[in-house]
């Protein structure tokens, strides 16, 4: 094996180690600043104060509900559609496909006013649906693109054989497509999870009720709650970031692969 960068001498290796360490400092600094700032003043008391408000659990639960609902919708609709696009007969298939794909470049800020007006008119403003449906609609195009490419790689003969054996389309979907798409399915779950969990603008505009707001709105909530006491706001930021970092550390490979797949449109 020949690595793209070779360090035969010990001094070179030490130099590279130093370079890597210097390069990583700016990436660690904000994380250190976050923890240090959250412990300033009353120390762990800041965390106690944040928890005693009781909002953390609620915001957390709301984000979880929104993320899980979005994931379920995106996963189910994507699998169905990708199978349809890849292996079933559709007249003018590519027209439908490109209509969905064109939504890929859409900045969500463009949706704000119409969504605001529509959700208000339909009576879903200030509910989870007002956030879940647009989030899902924004994630699906790319998920369908990825999954269709993946299913295209499964040979047609497999499906033909299943049909000859008398298996219906749904059986083929259930016993061939779903198991075989597991790797790409995992990537889509991770991508959607991060997209939904980190979304800020849609909850900001479409959810008013603090009992339904998401974790991304927590810092602002505490800014007003503690009249701008930064230490407590930072403590709430640490509390918010910990589950995300923990999830990443537990599923490191999955996160890296999923997000990498997401970047390679």
């Amino acid at each position: 094996m020949s690595p793209v960068f070779e360090a035969r001498r010990r001094s070179t290796r030490l130099l590279l180690q130093l370079v890597a360490t210097l390069m990583i400092i700016p990436y660690v600094f904000p994380l250190v600043a976050m923890v240090q700032g959250s412990l300033a003043g009353e120390g762990l008391g800041n965390y106690q104060a944040v928890f005693s408000v009781g909002a953390v659990g609620t915001f957390f639960r709301n984000s979880a509900i929104i993320a899980v609902s979005t994931i379920v919708i995106v996963y189910v609709l994507t699998m169905l559609a990708a199978f349809g696009f890849s292996k079933l007969r559709i007249r003018a298939k590519e027209v439908y496909f490109w209509l969905i794909l064109a939504a890929l470049t859409l900045p969500e800020v463009v949706l704000l006013t119409p969504l605001f007006a529509t959700t208000l008119a339909l009576g879903v403003y200030d509910t989870y649906w007002a956030v879940v449906l647009p989030l899902a609609a924004l994630q699906i195009p790319f998920a369908v693109l990825l999954t269709r490419k993946f299913i295209d790689g499964v040979p047609d003969s497999l499906f033909d054989a299943a049909r000859v054996d008398g298996a219906g389309v749904f059986t083929a979907f259930r016993y061939i497509v779903l198991p075989m798409t597991r790797p790409i399915g995992a990537a889509i779950v991770v991508l959607t999870l991060i997209g939904a969990w980190n979304s800020y603008l849609l909850p900001l505009v479409l959810i008013q009720d603090p009992a339904k707001q998401t974790i991304t709105l927590l810092p602002q909530f505490f800014v007003s709650q503690f009249s701008n006491d930064q230490t407590k706001v930072l403590a709430s930021a640490v509390i918010t970031a910990i589950p995300e970092i923990a999830a990443y550390l537990c599923l490191q490979g999955l996160f890296e692969r999923g997000l990498a797949a997401g970047a390679l449109k």
Binding site: L88, I100, V110, L111
Partner: peptide
């Protein structure tokens, strides 16, 4: 003889195209 894929793609199509294109036209 393959079955039609239209019912399979329509949920995603309705959600994406319905919601996003509706919003764009409204905008």
């Amino acid at each position: 003889l393959r079955p039609s894929g239209l019912p399979w793609i329509s949920p995603a199509f309705v959600l994406v195209v319905g919601l996003i294109y509706y919003c764009i036209i409204e905008t």
